[in-house]
Amino acid sequence: MEPLITHTGQAVALRRDDIDTDQIVPAEYCKRVVKSGYADALFARWRQEPDFVLNRPAHAGATVLLAGRNFGIGSSREHAVWALKDGGFVAVVASGFGDIFRRNAMNNGLIPVDQPVEVVQELMAEAERDPSFTLTVDLQQLRLVVGGRSWPFEAEQRARELLLQGLDTIELTMRRGELIEAYERRRPSWLPTVPVGSGSEHATGGAR
């Protein structure tokens, strides 16, 4: 992944609380087996309303999504994060995130910026007044910056470092191979395994 240190971009306000990942990407789009090309899936049902904020030409270039409380709850579908990225977004500023969404976002370089409701409200009002309203998400300093004002935000330290350096998290875990092997030797022997064929005595053979 490309290193991500700081991002400055146009913000758009989506004034809704409790936006679940079914709204971000409806399930029918989760039939696909690819990881990109989900721009058409992003808020697909809401986009059918002509006046939906993301349909307005003035917001076409937005890269920072301002949303209400509790963003990205529900289904674990990472498609929601892929779609936001394919839709041009680099950060989401909201008051609270679903735990799985937050993790998926960091795994893909979409920055979840958790802010108090008052801050988000203030930013939303400005984005609605001026569609060219721009803000900066500084992952190095962990600050959200608008003109002379700024607010701190939190990010899991390791996930942040990985993004800053563009590192592969799986590679880092694989470097712990000896520790993993040592752990595996300590595991109780009764723990279950499901090798191929373990359910075959029950197979009907009618599978297509």
Partner: peptide
């Protein structure tokens, strides 16, 4: 607990997850 697809890949490759304690 539920995980996203990046973490599914992580588990397939390493049988582990790097994760903060809730």
């Amino acid at each position: 607990f539920g995980i996203g697809t990046s973490d599914v890949e992580h588990v397939l490759a390493t049988q582990c997850l790097a994760i903060s304690r809730p």
